[in-house]
Simulated assay, not measured.
Amino acid sequence: MNTQDKDLKAVEHIRAHQMVEMKGIGYLPRDMIIEILSRLPAKVLCKCRCVSKSWHDLLTRDVEFMTRHVQWSKQKPLLLVRRYISDGIGELNKSKITIELTSIDMQGDVTDKFRKVIDGPVHTFVSCGPLSILCCMYSLYVCNPSIHQVVRVPYHANSRLYNIGFGYLPVSNEYKIVHMFYHSFIGNGKMGCEIFSFKTGEGVTSGSWRGIGDCPFSAWTDEYPVSVNGTIYWALSSGWKDKSILSLDLEKEEFSCISYPIHESKKYNFLEYIGLMSTLCVVGFSAEASTMDIWMLKEKKNKTWAMEYSINLFPLCPKFLVPSDDHSEEILVHMEQRDLICYSLKSQTSRRIGYYRAMKTYNKPCLYYGSLIPMHSSSF
């Protein structure tokens, strides 16, 4: 066999491996199949898993497909809201409670809902990409709402869970749950920190806890944490004066403290912090001026802030921010009028998402995007 024949045979071999046979599609290039299916909503793809074994393997085990699907899903984020259901479970077991999780699109329409029995009320409800955290007093759960999977994170028996943060490191394909806690309420009040890590392909229950020492800043946090570009931030409860933000670099696992950028804080009725355009932002609301000022952390190392936007909200009155995707250019503001306003920093336009009018019983939502990432290692 000459060199030309060998080259032709090699090309045919490569082409054969690039073609995937799937029932209902036939032979198509693998990248074409992935490109087509990755554009479909997770709810539709869940049904497609039952078509055949080849479909199931591609949709639940193929890392390239799941990565591509997440990229498309980011363009259509969803709101996840929760409420408690009275269904008789509490009468049988006082420690159990039924929670209903509802997904809502950016037009305000309900796209999906499901229920899960958990161990008591949720005090921390945060999301990171396609996954969400439900933290009760003594139990912790990781949830993928797209596939209705809620998995309990193993934790020390009878140990109370306090402040929980949740972040993701794309370099290592690793999620990290951060738990901040007091060693004792008597004494110097030092806070300890432990981290639970798990990778996407290994399932939640394959992860484990490990301590990383004490937090050097012994102030308690009173707000939900925010995850931005591999760093988790907490607002520290130190009053209006010298109000600061605690940060934890998830890769280096190192703490630092950042002062708030706003010195004249009395001009604002309240302050909140979120992630926007891959940057930590502090947002100040002034009821008197009907404005929303957005300060951005321009240099993380030097802790330099700059006020980039001042938005006129008149005649609306803001109540709180809804955490958004940290790469997004849109900010979600819940108004006193029970509307959700989506404001685009790029186009400087706003639109209403009136889901609160129909769902007055729901609590503060979090934002996520669809994914078929399984929570159990056996699914891979």
Rank of each mutant, 00 (worst) to 15 (best):
L134V: 05
S159K: 10
V142S: 11
A157R: 06
V126W: 09
S139H: 08
P121K: 03
Y162F: 12
Y155C: 09
G165W: 00
P130F: 15
Y138A: 00
Y138M: 06
P154H: 10
N163E: 01
H148D: 09
F125C: 10
C136W: 00
C135E: 04
C128L: 10
Y138W: 03
Q149F: 13
G165Y: 00
C135A: 15
G129R: 07
S146D: 10
H123G: 08
F166L: 05
R160A: 07
C136T: 09
D119E: 14
M137Q: 07
G129T: 09
I147C: 06
P121H: 04
C135K: 08
P154M: 05
P145E: 14
P130Q: 15
I147R: 06
R160W: 03
H148T: 14
S132C: 15
S127H: 14
S127E: 15
A157T: 06
N144T: 10
S127N: 11
Y141W: 10
N144H: 11
S146A: 13
D119I: 05
C128R: 14
V122M: 03
P130W: 15
C128F: 06
Y141C: 06
I164V: 06
N158A: 13
L131F: 15
S146G: 12
C143M: 12
M137R: 07
S139N: 14
S139Y: 05
P130T: 15
V142A: 15
S127P: 14
P145I: 00
P154I: 08
L131N: 11
S146N: 07
P130K: 15
G165K: 02
C135L: 06
N163D: 02
C128I: 10
V151E: 13
S139R: 02
H148L: 01
Q149K: 03
H123P: 03
H148P: 04
F166W: 03
I164F: 01
G129S: 06
A157M: 02
S139C: 01
V126S: 08
N158S: 09
V151T: 14
Y138C: 00
Y138T: 01
P145G: 08
F125E: 12
I133R: 06
N163V: 00
V142I: 14
P121L: 03
A157G: 04
V126P: 07
P121M: 05
S159H: 06
F166T: 04
N158V: 03
V122Y: 07
G165E: 04
S132Q: 10
H148M: 06
H148S: 06
M137K: 10
L134N: 04
S127R: 13
G167H: 04
H123R: 09
P154R: 10
G120C: 03
P145H: 04
R160T: 08
I133E: 08
Y141T: 03
V151I: 12
H123V: 11
V150T: 15
D119V: 09
G120W: 00
G120Y: 00
V122R: 05
G167A: 01
V151G: 05
L161C: 01
H148K: 08
C143W: 02
G129C: 08
L131T: 14
G165I: 02
P154L: 15
T124M: 14
A157I: 08
L134Y: 08
V151S: 11
S132T: 15
P121C: 07
M137L: 12
L161W: 02
S127I: 14
I164H: 02
